[in-house]
Amino acid sequence: MTVVCDFDLLRPETGVAALLPDGTQVAVFLTADGTLHALDNIDPFSGAAVLSRGIVGDRGGVPVVVSPVYKQAFELATGKCLDEPSVSVAVHPVRVRDGVVELP
């Protein structure tokens, strides 16, 4: 289990990055309706660890984050890339316990 940060630190429709003990980087997002999502932070199109810095919004009502490098959209719930359906990023479980965001 990795502690990310206090839930109050998150801002709606922005992401933060967390480092797991094994070196994996996870991007954690809070959507406008209060839902948390966690995806791999590495953008598969550029290799840069930047997905947490993408713009969060929706495409056709589906919550997405858009990579800041080459602007592909990834579905927050599934990690699926909506612009290149053969590409996806890993989804991580994420929860809030006692006001703290955790990656179990």
Partner: peptide
């Protein structure tokens, strides 16, 4: 770089030297 580890740099970023300056190592895409 990391909200849970302020001060820790992003481990994927590394540099090599070219003409006397630091340039990025191409990321394994």
């Amino acid at each position: 770089s990391f909200v849970n580890a302020p001060g820790t740099p992003d481990p994927t970023i590394s540099f090599r030297a070219e003409r006397g300056q630091r340039v990025p190592v191409q990321l394994g895409i």
